[in-house]
């Protein structure tokens, strides 16, 4: 099965890059799903339906990977031969860890602040800015491409993951507040 072994960028006929044209990605995604989605084969035999579920799931996975910056960066590292195991997220940089601890404390203090929604907004803004900055750094290292650069790129991705997690938690916290 040729196309399933292609890398995600090739599947979408996109250049392997840190930057992805979101509009083009979406329109390629819809074209691919139109070709492979099980709905196209609803009346066919069972084997054909299984095959199309596999293809459609693969296309969805590829789309979700390329759409968001963090999975995309991790995937670029994987293509460069570095499979980042996020379960073992060990960062030695003490300065970064201190920063994270401070951020965590601010998050847990949100409930007792006078204006929690404002606090959430401020922290979310900081997370977004940090993520953006990490993306810039990542691109620089990835483009340079030596083993040493990729090592650095991997560290940046790990840091980025911290911030993405924080952003998700803040989202959750915000909707909790709206529910109260």
């Amino acid at each position: 099965m040729v196309d399933l072994t292609k890398n995600y960028f090739e599947l979408f006929e996109l250049p392997v890059s840190c930057q992805v044209d979101q509009q083009y990605l979406s329109s390629q995604y819809r074209a691919l799903q139109r070709a492979v989605h099980p709905d196209r084969f609803a009346g066919d035999d069972a084997r054909q339906q299984r095959l199309s579920v596999q293809y459609a799931a693969h296309v969805n996975e590829a789309f979700n990977t390329l759409k968001q910056p963090l999975p995309r960066a991790m995937y670029l590292l994987k293509l460069a031969g570095r499979d980042v195991d996020m379960e073992r997220n060990t960062i030695m940089d003490p300065e970064f860890l201190m920063e994270q601890m401070a951020l965590r404390e601010s998050v847990s203090a949100i409930r007792s602040t006078a204006n929690p929604e404002q606090a959430i907004e401020r922290l979310a803004g900081q997370a977004d800015a940090d993520i953006y900055q990490y993306l810039q750094q990542f691109e620089g290292f990835w483009l340079a491409g030596t083993e040493q650069d990729l090592e650095q790129a991997e560290t940046v991705v790990r840091k980025m993951q911290f911030m993405v997690k924080l952003a998700t938690e803040l989202d959750q916290l915000e909707s909790d507040f709206l529910d109260d």
Partner: peptide, 24 residues
């Protein structure tokens, strides 16, 4: 036959993908 035609089915899916993208 599901097995003997598997490769053909996959080639057709891949052709479908190529055509979908070139149509794009």
């Amino acid at each position: 036959i599901a097995q003997s035609s598997e490769e053909f089915a996959a080639r057709r899916m891949n052709q479908g993908i190529r055509q979908a993208l070139s149509g794009q």
